[in-house]
């Protein structure tokens, strides 16, 4: 009996026997070998594990970027494990937002255009897109830099643009793949503080990291090893804003 069954309302994420095999040479490799996990709405979950542990495969499956070889995956109560690539694209558009280690901003587009991009694929009119994108950038603290291109922004600012982009369609779940991996400690803490603030306002977050320093800001930590879930522990999250304040004074971030 799983505790999650007792929870009222649909779970955000619910997997049973989630499996992913890859063809490798003559045989197959199990990147994920049967994972059962339940995540309620509003959670802040970190997935940890060494490389090759299956945590990234797990993130890709939860993010509907990939389809499982076996098992079931319900997102907000909807079975999505067997959907077509285009249906998955639709799920990604409506329910999910992505933040990557390397930001993945379009280099030729300014911050506003980057944040507008997900709305283009939802058919939002240009005027409305601009309004929402500008408001979202303001919400992540970049209201003054709407027309800067990625190469005119610092790493932390680029990641904020990426977060604004991930949130602009109002997703149920924000997926972050090593979001602080390319950032220095201070900037990483700033991003974590932003994540915690977003989480407090109701955004569920699933974050993959190999860094325990980062994982401590989540309220729940999943540990992967050899394609299996080997640990699922709730914790009292550290306060990123406080950690940031405790840092010795550093030179101001270059704009």
């Amino acid at each position: 009996m799983r505790d999650a069954d007792a929870a009222p309302g649909p779970l955000l994420v619910e997997t049973e026997g989630l499996t992913k095999h890859y063809a490798a040479g003559e045989g197959t490799v199990a990147a994920l070998a049967g994972v059962d996990v339940a995540i309620p709405p509003g959670a802040f979950v970190a997935a940890m594990g060494p490389s090759g542990s299956g945590k990234s495969t797990f993130l890709n499956l939860i993010g509907c970027l990939d389809r499982p070889t076996g098992g079931s995956y319900r997102l907000m109560g909807e079975e999505v494990a067997r959907l077509s690539p285009d249906r998955l694209a639709e799920i990604r558009s409506r329910r999910l937002g992505f933040v990557f280690q390397s930001f993945n901003l379009l280099p030729r587009a300014d911050a506003l255009a980057n944040v507008e991009l997900p709305m283009i694929y939802r058919g939002v009119r240009r005027r409305q897109r601009r309004e929402r994108a500008a408001a979202m950038l303001a919400a992540v603290g970049l209201g003054e830099r709407l027309h800067h291109r990625p190469n005119q922004l610092s790493g932390g600012q680029q990641q904020r643009v990426a977060i604004a982009r991930a949130l602009v369609n109002g997703p149920d779940l924000l997926l972050a793949d090593e979001p602080t991996g390319a950032l220095d400690t201070r900037t990483g803490l700033e991003i974590m503080a932003l994540f915690q603030a977003l989480n407090r306002s109701g955004v569920a977050i699933l974050m993959v990291t190999h860094d325990a320093e980062v994982a401590r800001f989540a309220a729940r930590v999943l540990r992967f090893r050899d394609g299996r879930l080997v640990g699922d522990r709730a914790q009292v999250p550290a306060d990123a804003a406080a950690a940031l304040a405790a840092l010795p004074a550093a030179p101001a971030e270059a704009a």
Binding site: P40, P41, G42, R200, S201, A234
Partner: peptide, 20 residues
């Protein structure tokens, strides 16, 4: 295992609140 979760707020999330 029963993770003590932050109880979810309701969507739309705050940064997008008040937007069209």
């Amino acid at each position: 295992m029963s993770p003590p979760l932050r109880e979810a707020g309701t969507r739309p999330l705050a940064p997008a609140a008040g937007l069209p």
